[in-house]
Amino acid sequence: MEPERPDENGDGQQSQGLKRGGAAGVVARARAQGLALKERAEAEAKTYKDPQQTQLWKSIFRVSHDRSDPRNRSLAILSNVFLHLHPAKINRDATRYSFTWGMGGITFYLFIVLTFTGILLMFYYHPTKVQAFRDILYLEHDVPFGKLLRNMHRWAAHLMIITTWLHMFRVVLTGSYKRPREFNWCVGVVLLVLTLLLSFTGYLLPDDQLGFWAVTVGTNMARATPGFGSEGPFGPQLGMTPFNDVRFGLLGGSIVDANALLRSYIWHCIGIPVVASLFMAVHFWRIRKDGGISGPAPVMLESEMKAAKK
């Protein structure tokens, strides 16, 4: 091919072109090539009008979402890591709000909100006696949206406890703990306890009077643990003192102080969330393995009750 970029090449080539067709010929050829390039670019741009047909899109989304035929609807769920916990299809009445109350899902969503706001809060918080309380003041008065962040974390935590209880209540009212879901109910009870402990360990972190005395009252009960508490039945006989009993282990000391702050911080931010995540994974997985959401199932009649297996 003859030179397409006349400026880049030196005078010698330009003079060659001059020899062949003169200056007008060079211009005409350049124009023709320019037009061809433009047409090609336009044609290419038209294909970009449908982003779902691009290589970039297809590399991210494994299936096309431009049609809503049954196959694609199923694939939308099955091929997505976040949605694949769901089955592709469910009982048509199960999407009714009145059946599930949505409380389990909302509890999980609140856990996500709490993780998100909690991570942001960790950027501004030091679990030390000197700084903890000042960090809260700093959050409330200086950090942009710091007050909103702390408020959201607090209220989401309270709300999560209420939604957990209501979820449990619904499961009882619909008999959803019955065979084959007994074990998943137990996993749920563990998650309930972990939710309460998460909230409790977070209570101390602002290092204010409210948290301090609530945790003092709460951990004082541990003193009375039979066998393991310094004031519990058989505790002193087994050598328990305020400096080696179970309360000491919880607080890292005999009073609620710097070590207690650090311990609750680590339990709150790392220990319990990790354990709770594991139990959540099992909880959600078992929902699917136990046959998905329990209902609304067709009612059974008393007259159809089979005789008990002897």
Partner: peptide, 8 residues
Amino acid sequence: PLGNGYYS
């Protein structure tokens, strides 16, 4: 065994 999956 009754009441598995529905309010009752």
